[in-house]
Simulated scan of single mutants.
Amino acid sequence: MTTEFSPFHIAIPVHNLEECRTFYKDILNCEEGRSSDHWVDFNFFGHQLVIHYKEKSAEDLHTNPVDGKHVPVPHYGVVLPWDVFHDFAENIRAKGVQFIIEPYIRFEGQVGEQITMFFLDPAGNALEFKAFKDMGQLFAK
């Protein structure tokens, strides 16, 4: 497996294309790319995120217990540099984003020390953003 940077592609369902377009563009500051009346591409921190219209589902949010918190499953997101994470968290907090899990540090002083946070987009898709104190420990055991 290569260790070079390879952008990923993810497509997610949204029931309100315009509301989610505004969220990703104006709240998360993602640059918009191509679009149609059923989907929109975004530059999601160097990766391709596509929001696709899908009728609203009645499914409840599923969670698993981690560190005494209810982590939403499924979820997606990115690993940011440590200093970028803090600025990003304050920026979205200032824009009124409600956290499912407030930013907190896991494994403090241990291998894999990281900070993480979770919130939902307007369609109810769960996002996790995290940062490692030492990025070299991203896959450390």
Rank of each mutant, 00 (worst) to 15 (best):
M1I: 00
T2Y: 12
F5S: 12
S6T: 14
P7T: 07
F8K: 15
I12Y: 10
I12F: 12
P13C: 03
H15Q: 04
H15S: 10
N16M: 06
L17S: 09
L17D: 11
E19N: 13
R21Y: 10
F23Q: 09
F23C: 07
F23P: 06
F23K: 08
D26E: 14
N29L: 13
C30R: 11
E31H: 11
G33R: 12
G33C: 11
R34D: 14
S35Y: 09
D37G: 00
D37H: 06
H38P: 00
W39L: 09
V40G: 03
V40T: 11
D41V: 06
F42S: 05
F44Y: 13
L49K: 08
L49M: 09
H52Q: 15
Y53D: 01
Y53I: 00
K54W: 14
K54H: 15
K54I: 01
S57D: 15
S57K: 15
E59D: 15
H62D: 11
G68V: 06
G68N: 14
K69L: 15
H70D: 15
P72T: 09
P74M: 13
P74Q: 14
P74W: 13
H75C: 08
H75S: 11
L80R: 11
L80S: 10
P81I: 01
P81F: 08
V84M: 13
H86A: 08
D87I: 09
E90T: 02
R93S: 12
G96W: 05
G96D: 05
V97Q: 07
Y104G: 05
R106H: 06
F107H: 10
F107T: 03
F107V: 00
E108V: 08
G109P: 07
G109K: 12
G112N: 03
Q114S: 08
Q114A: 04
T116N: 05
T116W: 02
F118I: 00
A123W: 06
A123S: 15
G124P: 08
A126V: 03
E128H: 01
E128K: 03
F129R: 04
F129W: 01
A131E: 05
F132A: 04
F132E: 02
K133V: 01
D134Y: 07
D134W: 00
G136T: 07
G136Y: 05
Q137W: 03
L138A: 08
K141P: 02
